[in-house]
C-alpha cells in the first residue's frame, strides 16, 4: 500500500507576524497533512489567544531588546521564542478527543527526539518533558475541520532574559519563580539541524508517512502576508481579543 504523504515545509527564520501568518494561511489552503519546521528572527514572545498582553509581557522591554510580540490563534501560555525549533502540523484527519490529538502529534515529536537520543515523554495536558523537565510546549486549534498544532522544542533557555520580558503575577515572588522555572524547564542543547532531522523522521514514523519536501506556494505566501500585515502585527489584534 502506498504510504500517506506529509507535505514538509522548511522555512528560513521569519518574523513572529509572518510565522503566525504562514501557519494560518496553511490552515486555510493546504490540502495534504503538512509539517512545517521554523524559527524566529528577531526573537519573539507569543501569547496564547486568551492571555492579556499587558498582564503577561513587558512590551516596553521587548521594544528595547528588539523582541517581537505576537498573539496566537491558539490558547496556552506565553512563550519566549529564542533558540529553539518550532514546528506546526496541519491536518484534516485527527482524533476528535483533544487530549488524544495532543498525544498523537506530540507522539511524533517524542519519536523524533528519540532519533537524536533524547528520551522524552508526553506530559498532559500539552507539554513534552525530558527527565521530568519541560522541553516543549504545544498548542492547538481546530477550525472548519482543520487542526493546527504548533509547538516549541527548546534548544537553549535563558531564564533570566525570559523573565526580563515576561511578567510574573507577584513581583515579590519573582526570584522564587525564576528559580522554579530553572528547575523545571530545560533546553536540549543540540544544533537545530540535528533536532530538525529527528523530528522529520518522527513524523514519518508516527503517521507511517512519506515526507514530501515542498515550498510555501505563491497563493499561501500572499495570504500569509495579508494575515501578517492586517492581523498579527496590528495593535488591535494584540491588545484586544474581541475582534
Amino acid at each position: 500500500m502506498e504510504k500517506m504523504k506529509i507535505r514538509l515545509i522548511e522555512t528560513p527564520a521569519k518574523s513572529a507576524f509572518m510565522n503566525m501568518g504562514i501557519d494560518e494561511a496553511l490552515m486555510n489552503l493546504t490540502t495534504l497533512p503538512t509539517l512545517r519546521l521554523y524559527s524566529w528572527k528577531p526573537p519573539a514572545v507569543s501569547l496564547g489567544y486568551f492571555q492579556n498582553v499587558t498582564d503577561e509581557v513587558n512590551v516596553e522591554k521587548c521594544r528595547e531588546l528588539g523582541v517581537d510580540v505576537v498573539r496566537r490563534v491558539t490558547g496556552g501560555g506565553a512563550v519566549f521564542h529564542d533558540t529553539e525549533l518550532t514546528y506546526s502540523f496541519i491536518t484534516k484527519n485527527y482524533p476528535p478527543g483533544i487530549l488524544e490529538s495532543y498525544q498523537l502529534i506530540c507522539g511524533a515529536v517524542i519519536k523524533g527526539l528519540a532519533k537524536v537520543g533524547v528520551n522524552a515523554a508526553f506530559a498532559p495536558l500539552n507539554d513534552i518533558v525530558m527527565g521530568g523537565k519541560k522541553i516543549s510546549g504545544n498548542a492547538q486549534t481546530r477550525k472548519k475541520s482543520v487542526l493546527l498544532q504548533h509547538g516549541t522544542i527548546l534548544l537553549q533557555v535563558d531564564v533570566e532574559k525570559m523573565f526580563s520580558i515576561l511578567k510574573v503575577p507577584d513581583e515579590k515572588m519573582k526570584d522564587k519563580i525564576i528559580k522554579n522555572v530553572k528547575e523545571r524547564v530545560v533546553g536540549l542543547n543540540m544544533p537545530f539541524d540535528n533536532v530538525s532531522d529527528g523530528i522529520k523522521q518522527g513524523f514519518a514514523e508516527q503517521f507511517n508517512a512519506q515526507l514530501a519536501p515542498s515550498a510555501v506556494t505563491a497563493e499561501e505566501l500572499l495570504l500569509a502576508e495579508k494575515f501578517a500585515n492586517d492581523k498579527y502585527s496590528s495593535t488591535e489584534w494584540l491588545f484586544e481579543k474581541r475582534v
Partner: peptide, 28 residues
C-alpha cells in the same frame, strides 16, 4: 485570570488565562 466589575450582579467581566477553548472566539 478573572477581572470583574460587580454589585449584586456581574456588570463587566474579562476572562484570561492559558487554557484552551474551541472555538476560541466563543470566550466572548
Amino acid at each position: 485570570k478573572v477581572k470583574v466589575k460587580y454589585d449584586d450582579r456581574i456588570r463587566e467581566i474579562e476572562i484570561n488565562g492559558d487554557f484552551f477553548l474551541h472555538p476560541e472566539e466563543s470566550i466572548a
